[in-house]
Write a protein that binds this DNA or RNA. Structure first.
Lengths: 225, 225
DNA sequence: CACAATTTGGAGCGTATGCTCCAAAAACCA
DNA sequence: TGGTTTTTGGAGCATACGCTCCAAATTGTG
């Protein structure tokens, strides 16, 4: 065991040294791209060196190991997804409309990044034996997203837009569908297929809405004996 | 280039030779297990040799390469899933009841194999650059499953159990959810979480049912102005 | 400028990995 | 039984891979 510095938390410099020639966040963005396309296991350190334009010593000096670089990349990826998709859903005061907007934005995100799916999900899918940090991260992300979905449904109930029973179930349904969309993209679904799926979930959300003359609830009522 | 025989289609023997000491299908079952747990990329040929109890020459003589072994394993895996889950759905004459049974069986399957998810989906998630046979296979499987789901919904419409609009959308919703369930398992969802998800989709299917006094459709009607 | 501190380039180390090669083994057939 | 064909065990090859090491470069400081 050699006494190695913890690369993730650099101590304050006592005296000066040669400064870094690259921007840490830009490099992480590059790492996200590579891992996202090739997966963790199929990405070699030489792939990373080439894509990031860095020598191995720079990478290892800054991030410590390939696995830690992945973790840092995952953190950055998650924040970008969260900022663009989850936070708007969380901060919205709308109910079902917020859900519709969320799925519209998600659909755009997924189509834009087709066929790469979700980096977080992809990395958890590679080897079940290694308990990755990605898995912990994905669990927390799932929890957070489900909570946001459920709260939007509750807001719609409070506004009288939607019926009030099994709110949690509907959140679970949506959560499962979000995961499914990502994996459909990764598994090679066409843009048309993905967009059709997004329309499907939005239609279902529409059907949860009460008092909408064009909605299925009317048909529903009319067909009842 | 050496003239190599095509291992996947052994020609009929002209004269005898030493017979194989193992059962091809049992070996494939073993390969499914290994690939399912570790993923393709993290499975080494030595892992396979150990798990299958075979020498490398036996594996390569029989299957040709690691990739071809995966393809053969995928084929076998797909048939098992199909027999247990998809065929019952396709051959059933029920409508929504067939869907409920399908998701019950799927839930059991997924919980039984937690946290391995779906081998087909997992293998498509590893490296987006290589156009795997698994990806083609997964696309066809998705198509087939969607068709089966849609037909069940249509049967329920024909039987007067369900309203008749946007049948395709509902099939897409269910299809996306199936994919989501698998990836939730792989991503470390607990048994409780998975079962909750299955209950959620079954509740939604229930809500598609007309003329059921305990169903949400009644609430739906009652709450309408 | 000398010195300490840090990063950079890049050679290269030890092991892992997919696969091959070949002699020995084990079957059928004449 | 001798001949032919195929499989089996396992040594081993060529490359890939994660990572290390170190001299040179580049900064601030005294």
């Amino acid at each position: 065991m050699r006494p190695t510095r913890n690369p993730s938390r650099p101590h304050r410099r006592r005296t000066a040294g040669r400064p870094r020639s690259f921007d840490r966040d830009k490099v992480l963005d590059g790492a996200v791209e590579v891992f996202w396309e090739r997966g963790y296991r199929s990405t070699t350190t030489r792939d990373l060196e080439a894509a990031l334009g860095l020598a191995p010593s720079s990478i290892y000096n800054t991030f410590g190991s390939k696995r830690e670089l992945l973790n840092a990349a995952l953190e950055r990826y998650e924040r970008q997804v969260t900022d663009r998709l989850v936070t708007p859903l969380e901060t919205s005061t709308d109910g079902l409309a917020a859900l519709t907007e969320f799925f519209t934005a998600l659909g755009r995100w997924i189509v834009d990044h087709r066929p790469r799916g979700c980096l977080l999900i992809n990395t958890t899918s590679e080897d079940v034996r290694v308990k990755t940090v990605g898995m912990e991260r994905a669990s927390q992300y799932r929890l957070r997203l489900r909570r946001a979905l459920q709260r939007a449904i509750k807001r719609s109930v409070a506004a009288g837009d939607s019926y009030g029973d099994h709110v949690g179930s509907r959140a679970d349904l949506l959560l499962g569908f979000v995961l499914g969309l990502n994996v459909a993209s990764r598994a090679g679904a066409s843009t048309a297929e993905l967009e059709r799926m997004v329309r499907a979930v939005r239609k279902q959300i529409d059907d949860w809405q009460l008092d909408k003359s064009t909605s299925r609830s009317f048909t529903h009522f009319r067909k009842s004996p």
